[in-house]
């Protein structure tokens, strides 16, 4: 298996200047992920699962440690890389699915979904075709495709969000509770899409409230609870 990500001694805390205090999120986390591998992050609330995902995506700045990513351009430490390189990798190789849609005013659902393809240079008509296909797959009604998602319900927004995040295959996909607020059909469509991406070689790291949703995809579980941080291989997964 090709190694996609190698995390070494990653530590993250937050300095809250107005309180004059520090809060440790996680310390000295190390693990690696191969192409096509699905790693589930486990741990109680506050164990740092989402913080770890955001640190890998560089929405959070790690305090120490390395995030060695095997990009198409060679090995790069995401913890130290220049912002412009990170922006480029996000457009081309690293995807992030959150529970929250970042909708811009006056941008239609189909345009929101097509945007990652447009940024990757796909022509407008093709991008729109594919966007509609994924909106349909995740169960967004056609009459909403041209509407502005800012007014959608939480569940509908989440579907738009998924269609956007999963429209193009990535080398590394970070999943932060993507099944939250989804109905059963959309959950099934999500699992099918993730399975396809996985077999296509996408490495995935995910946080799920109900890991049962993606049980069949999980290769490894990493427990981030500080005292019990362990790594468990698929055969004896307990979720």
């Amino acid at each position: 298996m090709t190694n996609v990500l190698d995390i070494r001694g990653l530590t993250k805390g937050f300095i809250m200047h107005h309180l004059g205090s520090k809060m440790q999120a996680f310390a000295d986390v190390s693990f690696s992920v191969d192409a096509g591998e699905f790693v589930l992050l486990k741990g109680a609330n506050g164990a740092g699962k989402s913080t770890l995902l955001r640190s890998l995506y560089r929405s959070y700045l790690a305090q120490s440690g390395q995030i060695l990513f095997q990009s198409d351009h060679g090995l790069i430490d995401l913890a130290q890389a220049a912002d412009i390189d990170i922006a480029h990798l996000r457009r081309t190789e690293i995807g992030f699915v959150t529970q929250f849609l970042v909708a811009r005013p006056r941008v239609s659902a189909e345009a929101v979904v097509a945007e990652p393809l447009r940024m990757a240079g796909v022509n407008a008509a093709d991008a729109l075709d594919q966007a509609r296909h994924w909106l349909e797959t995740f169960g967004v009604k056609p009459e909403l495709w041209r509407a502005y998602p800012t007014t959608f319900s939480g569940g509908e927004q989440q579907k738009v969000n998924l269609a956007r995040a999963l429209i193009r295959p990535q080398k590394l996909l970070l999943l932060d509770e993507p099944t939250a607020s989804l109905d059963a059909n959309a959950r099934a469509a999500l699992v099918t899409r993730l399975a396809d991406l996985k077999s296509g070689g996408t490495a995935m790291i995910g946080v799920f409230h109900h890991p049962g949703d993606v049980e069949k995809l999980i290769d490894r579980v990493i427990d981030l609870t500080p005292e019990t941080r362990t790594e468990v291989v698929r055969d004896d997964v307990a979720i």
Partner: peptide
């Protein structure tokens, strides 16, 4: 301070940016 837009808003480092 300077950084990617999501980092500046989600994980501001400098006391002034946090404020």
């Amino acid at each position: 301070e300077a950084g990617l837009v999501d980092q500046i808003f989600q994980d501001p480092q400098h006391a002034y940016t946090q404020q």
